[in-house]
Design a protein around this nucleic acid. Structure first.
Lengths: 339, 339
DNA sequence: CTGAAAGCGCTAACAC
DNA sequence: GTGTTAGCGCTTTCAG
């Protein structure tokens, strides 16, 4: 096992000073052509690579960005990571991934862990518990310390920073409108509890669209689900005794559950009931019937988030309080679960 | 924006030396109780946290582990990351995630990027291209430099290091045997090209089990798929003109495609054709019919990998050449796609 | 009991 | 042109 080569060793080997080596390798005009050549050749030969940690310490920047998400076993987040990773890599950044498991404490812990020099900035989607508590001091602290932050998907107004979100209201509107357009008269909504921002916004989009079309709103047609554990049962119960002909579900899981429940009740999808989801998961494409969905473009969100963060990181000039909120458009993908 | 507190500042503020502060905070017996108390109180008050980068430079260890996978938008890898992340976090490690996109070059690049001080060790599943080329010099180099490595899932014999793999042959055997047990006579295999280790091994398990049961082997019943782009079409063509009554697919996607192709050909699953997959993806549970599968236990693999790596990292004693290969057992999960 | 000094690997201002 | 020095934040001998 040969330990990594350092400037020091090169210097000793070539009998020059460390700074000469450093400068030569960075192609400084201060150094004579001949020495430069010699040093570079040696470095190449022994495959010298500067030590990132030393650089980080010196430059006070790590060239890594931290991403904290509630869970990774979830297609949406996975696509976001993928997006972040690709633009990060392109710009020479590494990506540190942490999972909050939807727990406030883990989220805080992770941030503290990374805030001490491990990352230059954060890309975060808030834990459910965090949104429920409404405690965002850890985010504010990071900002105060000068760490740029971008919140995606699950963002909150309380924190002023860059954000990348989806046009949830509009997206939900598209879904609802689609159901109306194909002739649904009694449209149900399966959403998450209101403290999860997206649940709330998508509910809003649903309600607004119904109103705009002069549909009456029936609270009984709205199901709000807290956890995933019993969602199947809840959805089944919800669907069985209603006479819905259209269902809008705010995620893929709920949509699939809904279809199953409809099928179990002896009705057909999409003939009797049309179902539309909010996702761009694999399941939607492969399920039978394939799902009509409002697509979230997770990759795009990840890319935008990374771009926003890196932009902020590399603009070391005045800290202008110029925060952007990028709204990634949703699109309706018509497939077989709606007429 | 208040920059992070350093030992230096505390020292100045309290009018003691830096080393006194350092020692006090690490509870060294050298320091008097009163000064210790004073310093600790101050540190707590202003929420001092040591700078990870400085620590890394000093200790020559980063407390982060790098994981390089071919793609993240894939349920299996996602579960592995989740497993790695959890045990890593538990032991105070961070996780740096890099994607090779199945490209040899990106894999090498990523490793180089991380090997220069960013990580203490690697957890890797090889890119398809890497296995195809059979070029593992980058892995060997990392090992030579003293970076521990653990290979998971797609491992190769050429590199001697810790490994976490699945009992692919046995698992494939279980799948095949299950099909035989339920009465299938003409069993097809949908696999990947041979240079992907798992494809090869699972094929082996399939063949062996057929032989053991005195089934004749029909090469025409074996389909090997290279990329995912045209897999649907290939599978459809494969299935249409054969009279298979059992199909074993080495991943979830292929299994779903197979079911669709069977359905499209006017036959029923599982009545006419039983289909079994190799995965523990979400799709399998939710698809209709739900899929009988050999489960991979990605989370377990991730956990084992992380444990193995951290164990090696923390045993700073003699570098014993004691490499383990952990074989994570597969299990048969019977669902509705087989009789 | 406390502090000065060296050093982890690197860069950059400043001498020579 | 090349080298010396200081310093990034921290730990750790070794003096005092």
């Amino acid at each position: 096992m040969k330990p990594k080569l350092t400037l020091k060793q090169i210097a000793k080997e070539l009998e020059v000073s460390i700074s000469t080596v450093s400068k030569a390798l960075r192609d400084s005009p201060e150094i004579g052509e001949d020495t430069k050549l010699k040093i570079k050749a040696f470095a190449k030969l022994y495959n010298y690579k500067p030590n990132n940690i030393a650089l980080s310490l010196k430059n006070r920047k790590t060239k890594t960005i931290g991403i904290i998400i509630p869970e990774i076993v979830h297609h949406f987040f996975t696509t976001v990571i993928s997006g972040v990773e690709h633009v990060a890599n392109e710009k020479g950044y590494n990506v540190l991934v942490c999972l909050s498991d939807n727990s406030f404490d883990k989220e805080v812990l992770n941030m503290e862990m990374l805030a001490n020099g491990s990352t230059d900035g954060f890309i975060i989607s808030l834990a459910k518990e965090t949104m429920q508590k409404g405690d965002y001091h850890h985010l504010q602290e990071a900002i105060n310390q000068g760490m740029p932050l971008v919140l995606f998907d699950r963002a909150v107004d309380e924190i002023i920073c860059d954000k990348v979100i989806i046009d949830d209201i509009i997206g939900a509107g598209k879904a609802t409108q689609h159901l109306i357009d194909i002739g649904c008269k009694n449209i149900g909504l399966i959403s998450t509890v209101d403290y999860v921002s997206v649940g709330k916004l998508r509910t809003e989009g649903y309600l607004k669209t119904l109103q705009k079309n002069n549909f009456s709103i029936n609270e009984a047609n709205i199901l709000k689900i807290e956890g995933m554990e019993y969602s199947d049962e809840e959805i089944q119960k919800f669907i069985i005794d209603k006479d819905l002909d259209g269902i809008f579900a705010v995620n893929e899981h709920f949509a699939i559950s809904a279809i199953k429940a409809v099928l179990a009740s002896g009705k057909k999808v999409p003939d009797d009931v049309s179902v539309i989801g909010f996702t761009d998961g694999e399941l939607s494409k492969l399920f039978i019937p394939s799902l009509t969905v409002v697509s979230q473009h997770g990759t795009r969100m990840g890319e935008e988030s990374a771009r926003l963060l890196i932009e902020k990181l590399e603009r070391n000039d005045l800290e202008d309080e110029n925060y952007k909120t990028i709204i990634v458009e949703t699109g309706l993908v018509k497939r077989d679960s709606t007429k």
